[in-house]
């Protein structure tokens, strides 16, 4: 009987009729290149051709508690530790002290990275960022240049867009922010809340159209339990997977399961 070769992220050893059964050998980490920036998040990079497009703006959307902040922080942490790409995390939501403390539950010592010049966490009020953007963004640019940052995390767009009185103004401001992020030549992950209601989605004044990529994190109720899943809604210049994949919070951060499925309705 002809055995079907398993398509897998792992290397197979022996998959011929009569030969030993396939053994799963862990695939080596993808490496950053001029075109691709790996996230280092287990299971995610194989869904996106090895990584995000360099210098792109990636919107990470989801309800409260869906894992958006953790994902973006993990992107920066892995960038610094695995790939030697320093990162800056701009937060409107949480204090530095709180963030560093919560990161330790995954073994991420952000203070240590900061001391090594591989990470910086900047606390801003949303109006400060608006002023910075209007003024050309030199403050943030200085922070980027000081550690040679290649990755930026921003949490969250929701807080930022609430500053503006009309959806039009909000959209214009977000567009200005995204353009500034692109000018800074960093791969940027921007967190945004989104309200999922019975399959419909309501985003932030259409910002998903302004970004280069959109990841949607589900934290959905199924009867009396909740299920976590990730969907790549859009990714320019990338043959990304259309599958909705389950993910979990492991001991060292988020793990995506690209070969598994979500059972039941989200």
């Amino acid at each position: 009987m002809k055995r079907i070769r398993r398509i897998s992220g792992a290397e197979e050893v022996g998959c011929v009729h009569g030969a030993p059964k396939p053994q799963m050998v862990p695939k080596p980490l993808a490496k950053p290149s001029d075109e691709r920036v790996p996230s280092g998040i287990e299971g995610l990079d194989e869904l996106i051709e090895g990584g995000f497009e360099r210098n792109s703006v990636i919107l990470v959307c989801g309800d409260a508690g869906s894992g958006k902040t953790t994902l973006s922080l993990q992107f920066l942490y892995n960038g610094a530790v695995q790939y030697g790409e320093p990162g800056i995390f701009v937060t409107f939501e949480e204090t530095k002290k709180s963030m560093y403390k919560h990161a330790l539950q995954y073994g991420w010592d952000l203070k240590k990275l900061e001391d090594k010049g591989l990470f910086a966490l900047v606390e801003y009020k949303p109006q400060q960022i608006a002023e910075i953007i209007r003024g050309g963004g030199s403050t943030v640019k200085d922070a980027i240049d000081s550690i040679g940052a290649k990755r930026i995390g921003l949490d969250s767009l929701t807080s930022y867009s609430l500053l503006f009185k009309t959806p039009y103004e909000g959209r214009e401001a977000v567009l200005a922010l995204f353009n500034r992020l692109r000018e800074w030549k960093c791969t940027s992950m921007v967190v945004s809340e989104i309200i999922l209601q019975f399959g419909s989605r309501r985003g932030e004044a259409g910002v998903e159209f302004l970004s280069d990529a959109v990841l949607l994190l589900y934290y959905a109720r199924q009867q009396d339990m909740k299920v976590r899943a990730l969907e790549i809604l859009k990714m320019r210049g990338t043959k990304h997977s259309d599958k909705i994949c389950p993910f979990k919070f492991g001991d060292n951060g988020i793990i995506v399961f690209p070969k598994d499925s979500v059972f039941g309705r989200l």
Partner: peptide, 24 residues
């Protein structure tokens, strides 16, 4: 597995369990 309703979690763990078994 936290619940018999959680077939998603079961699927993930089954994959891990199957890979833990010997080759033959």
């Amino acid at each position: 597995v936290s619940s018999p309703k959680n077939l998603t979690e079961l699927s993930i763990l089954m994959e891990q369990a199957m890979l833990r078994l010997p080759a033959e």
